[in-house]
Design a protein around this nucleic acid. Structure first.
Lengths: 146, 146
DNA sequence: TAAAATTATATTGCACGCAATTTAATTGTG
DNA sequence: CACAATTAAATTGCGTGCAATATAATTTTA
């Protein structure tokens, strides 16, 4: 009896996503070194530069991460003087995260990063957009499916 | 003077890849629970089921992971009796990883996983293939770019 | 062939990522 | 209002990922 043909990892979409994600992280690493940021930390700043003074929960929803990941990450940024953490006065359950002057100043230093990343992908704006939309739809369906 | 328009994370391809990767891992988790495997461990078995008795290096090249990740992962699998580790007789630098009977037996239990994953993506075989190829090409270009 | 360079793996240290649990604050309900 | 349920963060524990370093084996080369 013939064995069922086994899918190799190279034929699996999940592995393509998984390894492309790692490749992105590796790609960003030297580009973020001047900022002293890891890739997840950089994502946090992208959110905060866009909208400052948000709660841990809001940040988590934006990044699809939970407090178990975000709390220690933010504490490291706080220890370096890049953000502050303060309990919300109206709802003491919430902790609001704010950029310090130094945290805001990082934005200028990070200006060249997105363009470098786009060049690294070797994709046109249109191709990158198309791929991005497919991945967002994929994430959505995976989330719904559980 | 107007501020330069800042890219939000939702407009960035890297974040789409990053979050889709996490979504996949979350999706797999309950499906792999019966096997007692994490997602990276499952990837290791996919490689070993395809070709048994390979070195740490070969496995690492296949998964784009280094010994710092693979060695402890394999040791956990070894501790559970799913694989063995043995120095290659011809080249004592190498450590060859082999499936135990129990490790081989897992393959049957894992049979339903790939189909469930495909269904979770909501994609046709063709659409998944197309997306996969784009991601493989992307990974390749990111690796080349550094 | 002895010394230098390279290669394969392991180890250490640090930063995620997430499940499970805990604590404290707020909201909902009788 | 009291008390249960919910919510927001933090904490704990475990498993990745990866840089940097260490160690041992092999290969290169002077």
């Amino acid at each position: 009896m013939a064995e069922k043909p086994m899918a190799t990892i190279d034929q699996m979409l999940c592995f393509a996503v998984y390894s492309a994600g790692h490749a992105f992280t590796r790609f960003y690493k030297p580009r973020l070194e001047a900022l002293g940021l890891t890739y997840p930390q950089y994502l946090v700043f992208l959110v905060l530069w866009e909208r400052d003074d948000i709660s841990v929960k809001t940040l988590g929803e934006r990044l699809f991460l939970d407090s178990g990941t975000i709390t220690p990450l933010i504490k490291r940024l706080e220890a370096r003087g890049l953000v502050t953490r303060r309990r919300d006065e109206d709802d003491e359950r919430q902790v609001r995260i704010r950029l310090t002057a130094e945290g805001k100043a990082l934005k200028a230093k990070a200006e060249s990063v997105p363009l470098a990343a786009m060049k690294g992908t070797g994709l046109s704006d249109e191709a990158a957009d198309a791929l991005r939309h497919e991945l967002l739809a994929l994430r959505e369906r995976l989330d719904v499916a559980l």
